[in-house]
Every structure is written in C-alpha cells, then in structure tokens.
C-alpha cells in the first residue's frame, strides 16, 4: 500500500515555525529529566527563594530545591500529558467527524447533538468534576482532557469533511465502489490535513492552559509529581520577593502557549 502523502504541498509551510517550535518543546520534555542538574525532590540549598546564581541558574524554591531542575521536570510532564490528551482528542475527533460527514443521517445527528451537549459544559468545570469523581492521577487527567477537547476537534473535522464529501471526486470514488476506509485515508484526509494540523496545535494550547489551571487550583498533578501550573502555585509566596521560582514557570507557560499560538497564526496568514 503506498501511503505517500503529498508532503511537499501540504507540509512545507507547516514544517517551518510551528513544527520547529513544537519539536523543540518535545525535545525539551523528553531530554529535560536527563539533563537536569539535581533530583527534583532534593533540597539543595538552605536559602529559600534564592536569586539567580551560578550554582542555581534559576534560583531555589520555597523549600530550597533547584528551580531549573523542577522546571525541566514540570515542562516534561505538562508537554507530554497535554500532547497525549491532544492526540487522543484529535484522533477520535477526526475519525468521528469524518464518519459523521460520510454517513450523514441519524449517525450524524446523534453524534453532533451529543458533542454539542459536551461542549456546552465549561472545560474547567468538567475537569474539576472528573477529578472530584475519579481522583487526581495521570490517566484520569489525560482521559478527562481528551474527552473535554474531543467535541471541538470533532466539529472542526466534521465541517471540513462535509465540504470535501460533497466534491465530485468523492462521488467518483463512491461510484467506483470504494470502501469507507479508502475514502477516509486517501480522498478526504489529505485534503483537510492543513487545517486539521492547525487545529491540533490549538487544542494542545488549550490543554496546556487547562492542566495549568487545574494544577494551580491544586487538583491537577499531585506531589511529588510536578507540572508548570503546580510549580507556579507552590512558589506563589515568592512573588513578594521577586523570586525567579515563580516567574520562571509562569514564563514557561506563556512561551509554550503564546509562542505556539503566534507561530500557528503566522502560518495561517501565510497560506
């Protein structure tokens, strides 16, 4: 089976800023724990909220732990958790969206109304409910975020697929008697790859924001695990001392979300 996507035509603009940035963050997330100078739970200094120094590049936190180390671990969990839930949400969303567009009728109506119902609940609220019901653990958080962002992805993909399904080349393939799987993989997906990848990027940013919010409220990742949101929260006291311990994770969240957003935006304008 040849599955050669027309890479030059659809992925060239995408391979520039946004993909490079995403790759950089992923690399940081994977390599972070290996290059961290200390252990994340190790108290390495007697000074709390120490300023930037040669020994502690980003100072120390409220217990005297190395902030750079904890930031690297935090970035790792934030990026990997959110990436996992985004992949799940968008994978399922794209699949269901294309199915709804292809089948139409009852399948489409039931799926769409159900998704509309889910989307009407504020994401933070459903996140809190999920954590309150099932407890806070990595699988619960990933699954909850996947469920929260599935309807949005479903709607985007359904809209894109609907306009493609009505094109004559789908009709021609159907008249030939092609199977649904062929229609999805070869005829529909390549034509919506660009907008869908942009959507994946946006969902990832939403997921980072939601996870950081949950952790900031104390219901996200629980110690000893750490992520960018919980790092900000536990060092909140450092704000009065102007400690890098609180500024660094907040900046990391900003760089991750705003940077990726700007890059995706720029790509959208470019096309």
């Amino acid at each position: 089976m040849m599955l050669a996507f027309p890479l030059p035509r659809y992925l060239t603009p995408f391979l520039q800023a946004p993909a490079l940035l995403a790759l950089l963050w992923l690399l940081l997330a994977l390599a972070g724990p290996w290059v961290a100078p200390y252990l994340p739970g190790e108290v390495v200094s007697t000074t709390v909220f120490a300023p930037i120094s040669a020994r502690h590049w980003l100072g120390t936190d409220y217990l005297g732990r190395d902030v750079l180390t904890r930031l690297l671990y935090g970035t790792s969990s934030t990026v990997l958790l959110c990436a996992a839930s985004t992949v799940m949400a968008c994978g399922a969303g794209a699949f269901l969206g294309m199915m709804a567009a292809l089948k139409r009728g009852m399948t489409d109506t039931l799926l769409s109304r159900f998704m509309d119902g889910v989307i009407s609940i504020p994401s933070l609220l459903s996140g809190l409910v999920a954590v309150a019901t099932f407890g806070s653990s990595v699988p619960v958080l990933v699954l909850a975020m996947a469920c929260i962002y599935l309807p949005g992805s479903y709607r985007t993909c359904r809209m894109l697929a609907l306009s493609i399904v009505q094109k004559d080349f789908i009709l021609a393939a159907r008249m030939r008697g092609e199977k649904t799987s062929y229609l999805v993989v070869r005829e529909i997906l390549p034509n919506m790859a660009g907008p869908v990848l942009t959507d994946v990027g946006l969902r990832f940013i939403y997921a980072v924001r939601l996870l950081s919010n949950l952790s900031f409220l104390g219901v996200g990742l629980q110690p000893p695990q750490t992520d960018l949101g919980s790092l900000t929260r536990e060092n909140l006291l450092g704000l009065v001392y102007g400690a890098p311990a609180v500024i660094a994770p907040a900046l990391a969240i900003a760089f991750l979300t705003v940077g990726l957003n700007l890059a995706l935006d720029g790509k959208g304008r470019h096309q």
Binding site: P6, D168, A172, M175, R176, E187, N191, A193
Partner: peptide, 24 residues
C-alpha cells in the same frame, strides 16, 4: 454489480471538482 459499475462511467462537467487536489 461491479461489472455494471465498471462498464458505465460518468465524466462530470467540472474537472476542477472531479480530480482530488491532493493526489497526483
């Protein structure tokens, strides 16, 4: 039947819509 589908082919008016832009 597959034979009927094969032996009866439709060529639509608008070639822009009939060819999948993502396939060579």
């Amino acid at each position: 039947t597959p034979q009927q589908r094969q032996h009866l082919q439709l060529v639509a008016q608008n070639a822009d819509l009939v060819l999948n832009p993502a396939l060579s």
